[in-house]
């Protein structure tokens, strides 16, 4: 059942979700270190210039600046999200935004990526491990041409396992 089908107003959901803002999740470490072939695929798929991340002899040493955002993959012991693809209406997305953050109990029918704000500190090196600390920053309601939406801001800080900052992001998630 979608939010529209519940008959509840977005304001009533907002009242329940607002107290969750500021909640943080325990720091998590990516399932594996930065792998050269994973970075190669990433550079090729984003159609980037590999020379930017190689040393003078052409060996890949670094990953692109926002690569750590995509390092938090499914672990070998985690359920396969594609099992739900037999449901023709399943959109392919997990409902938990970050492991350890409180669930957002809002029956959205569509989820949109609204954008990002970033601060970058350094590129991650091949072989390094990456950790992420996440928290809910804010949630608010806006009316648009296609109806009302909830805007959820999620803050993430990425650092190496030694605690060296890599980047900080604030993601805007739009739920309808």
């Amino acid at each position: 059942m979608t939010a529209a089908e519940t008959g509840r107003s977005l304001a009533s959901y907002l009242g329940e979700l607002k107290p969750l803002m500021g909640a943080g999740a325990p720091e998590v470490e990516a399932t594996h270190p930065v792998e050269a072939s994973e970075v190669r695929r990433f550079i090729q798929a984003s159609m980037d210039d590999p020379a930017r991340y190689c040393d003078e002899d052409g060996t890949l040493r670094f990953a692109p600046p926002a690569f750590p955002m995509h390092m938090f993959r499914r672990g070998l012991d985690e359920a396969d999200p594609l099992e739900a693809m037999t449901d023709a209406g399943f959109d392919g997305l997990r409902r938990s935004f970050r492991p350890g953050l409180p669930a957002i109990d809002f029956p959205f029918s569509r989820l949109l990526n609204g954008g990002y704000a970033y601060s970058f500190f350094r590129l991650v090196r091949i072989g390094e491990r990456v950790r992420r600390a996440s928290s809910y920053r804010d949630i608010y309601h806006r009316e648009g041409r296609s109806g009302g939406s909830l805007f959820l801001l999620i803050a993430d800080a990425y650092a190496t396992a030694d605690g060296e900052p890599l980047l900080e992001t604030v993601e805007t998630v739009i739920m309808r």
């Binding site: 695929r41 990433f42 090729q44 798929a45 984003s46 159609m47 995509h70 993959r73 499914r74 999200p81 594609l82 399943f90 959109d91 392919g92 997305l93 989820l111």
Partner: peptide, 19 residues
């Protein structure tokens, strides 16, 4: 194919990008 390659590289299974 470009879109599929990106979804695969980052393991993003949101159907709107390939289905």
């Amino acid at each position: 194919a470009h879109l599929m390659r990106w979804s695969s590289a980052i393991e993003n299974w949101h159907r709107i990008h390939y289905d």
